[in-house]
Design a protein around this nucleic acid. Structure first.
Lengths: 219, 219
DNA sequence: ACCTGAACACCGTTCAAGT
DNA sequence: ACCTGAACACCGTTCAAGT
């Protein structure tokens, strides 16, 4: 057993892998990380002062993967590319949107990322306040969407894997009620939601917000 | 001690009060609810089959508080009123946005609410797909914003109440890095975020999305 | 029908003790 | 300097047992 020495970066990597194997962020635990590292849970506390500190480090690691689009491009395509990039990173690494929310954006990577997004908008002619508000709007939308997707998948796998009879009831109830109460719009909504991919859904929303920004500029 | 009989509605009410006294949704526990009800935690399982079932009931209770605006109004004012109403309910009852995300919208109240929102847009001339997408976009934005606000307040009170030296460090780091790295846009963002209320922030984002919808209609 | 108590399998965190 | 083990104060959930 070549028990390689433990290190901070190693713990972060293993933590990210552990998180990826969890069904939700709160199933992620120090004890699980410790088990795969073949160390006692308390050992981690020599490298990180708390679970929160690990989450911060994990969030920074993910944020570092976001690349900035070519600054010569149109501001709209720049934003589209950057947020599509964010969407992709969030969906390839499960629960990272939750990670971002549970965590304070105090690192250089995360602050620089936000600064860059606002910068794109300011360079396009928007005020600092407008740029800041627009970034938040898109970011909250993206985060809300990805977290919702994540929860939905969690419910689905819980229904399949374990018993979870209760959750299954809830889902069938949706169809019953929408039918019995003649909630026509909800019936259509379920259909269109199934035919469209999550990415398409995100792109549609982003396009809507960008259109609002353009209208803001002209008006 | 007039030990009044336990009932499902009573448990739901006490649960909502208990949640309101928590700093986050995952601090909410069956054992806390049981303590205030002066019963054993296991007793709750006679009335609810799981914690998830209680969360569902709590979410429905909150959703029932949302009132529909006058259908004769302009679709834009209808949406504005309804989502402002949602924002107010979410902020007056802490952690209810999290509650909605952690929970399946399987009840009549919640499905009817969504159906109504799409209906406003369809009546305004949008397609079912457009209406459904627009509702999601606004809802995810609202949810993301409120959850973020909630987390921020949680961090703030943890810094004040307990030790939480680590969290305090993170916050001071934000200012240090934005200054040292000359992240001008972030500096302005922090300023404008402090001068504007959360409600103003929400209204700005909502206005942006509505403008996008108008542009969609005209284009 | 309603409620309890003990138990199980989990958490994060601390700290004296080991090497 | 690095790591462990036991302990503490928590979780959700189950189930035999009580009334």
């Amino acid at each position: 057993m070549p028990k390689s020495k433990i290190s901070r970066p190693q713990i972060i990597q293993v933590s990210l892998k552990t998180l990826a194997n969890c069904q939700s962020l709160d199933q992620f635990s120090m004890r699980k990380v410790a088990t795969t590292l073949q160390i006692d849970a308390s050992t981690i506390y020599w490298y990180f002062e708390s679970k929160q500190a690990i989450l911060q480090a994990m969030a920074d690691e993910i944020a570092a993967q976001i690349s900035f689009p070519d600054a010569n491009l149109d501001w709209k395509t720049q934003l589209t590319q950057l947020f599509n990039n964010l969407f992709d990173v969030y969906t390839t690494h499960p629960h990272t949107a939750e990670l971002m929310i549970e965590t304070i954006p105090s690192s250089e990577v995360r602050l620089a990322l936000m600064n860059h997004i606002i910068g794109i908008l300011v360079d396009a002619g928007f005020s600092e306040t407008q740029g800041s508000a627009a970034m938040s709007t898109i970011d909250f939308f993206l985060t809300g969407l990805v977290i919702d997707l994540s929860k939905e998948r969690q419910f689905r796998t819980e229904i399949n894997d374990k018993q979870a009879a209760y959750l299954h009831e809830q889902v069938t109830q949706i169809h019953q009620i929408t039918h019995d109460e003649h909630l026509v719009h909800m019936q259509n909504s379920v259909k269109s939601r199934n035919s469209e991919s999550a990415k398409q859904q995100f792109e549609a929303g982003l396009k809507l917000i960008l259109k609002g920004l353009v209208a803001d500029k002209e008006g």
